[in-house]
């Protein structure tokens, strides 16, 4: 399992691995928003939590199709499926590797971008915690979507259509938590909901992903 995690991380930072692409996309989207809505700092700080969350979600989506598709194309997935690793574990580890290479950098970059979006000072803690709790769910749900479309050529768009609706609960509670934090309100209720969604997704979806992979490998 650890070997697989190390391999995936190593592949991500090697040439063509796509590490940092999601992060760069996140930066650009958030930088573009003030150009689009104009230099109204009051408006920007009001929409900041929502914009940051949607940008994080899109950045996450960008690299999802790589989770299984690359291993499928070069035959590794067949070999992994016949290896001693349980496919559930493979799915979980690959989602974890995706989170480390995509979700975690987003969490760390978010405060800088919050500054660009004129996020109120009180909102940074809530924003960081909400992304920290929410991005693992994005990776695991995304891995399930990637498993569903693994055999398809050009499956990326179909995967986005499948995955985005599943992201709705995470987005609602994540953005709500960041918004409440920015307004100085109590954000414990959306935080618990968000943590619950992540925990549930982490516990259940690797099994669903593995089941779907088995069907797709036939």
């Amino acid at each position: 399992m650890i070997a697989l995690l190390v391999r995936d991380l190593r592949l991500a930072v090697r040439a063509g691995g796509g590490f940092g692409l999601g992060l760069a996309f996140f930066l650009i989207v958030v930088v573009l928003v003030p150009f689009g809505v104009g230099p109204d700092t009051a408006l920007l700080s009001r929409i900041a939590p929502g914009v940051l969350w949607i940008a994080a979600l899109l950045a996450c989506l960008l690299s999802l199709d790589r989770i299984f598709a690359l291993d499928f194309e070069d035959g590794s997935l067949d070999l992994l499926a016949t290896s001693p690793l349980p496919l559930e574990g493979v799915a979980a580890v690959k989602a974890l590797a995706h989170w480390v290479t995509t979700g975690l950098p987003l969490v760390l970059a978010a405060p800088v971008l919050g500054l660009l979006m004129n996020l109120p000072l009180a909102g940074y803690t809530a924003l960081m915690i909400s992304l920290m709790l929410g991005t693992p769910a994005l990776s695991v749900i995304g891995a399930f979507g990637a498993a569903l479309t693994v055999g398809l050529k050009r499956g990326g768009l179909l995967m986005s259509l499948l995955v985005l609706p599943m992201y709705v609960p995470t987005l609602i509670f994540g953005a709500e938590m960041a918004r409440r934090g920015a307004e100085g309100l109590d954000y414990s209720a959306p935080m618990f909901m968000l943590a619950g969604i992540s925990a549930g997704a982490l516990a259940l979806l690797p099994f669903a992903s593995a089941a779907v992979l088995r069907v797709n490998l036939r």
């Binding site: 592949l11 090697r14 040439a15 070069d74 035959g75 590794s76 016949t82």
Partner: peptide, 15 residues
């Protein structure tokens, strides 16, 4: 005890 080897070798080109 089974080891399967397919048409594709499952190699990672950047490793």
């Amino acid at each position: 005890e089974v080891c399967y080897a397919a048409h594709l070798d499952g190699l990672k080109t950047t490793l």
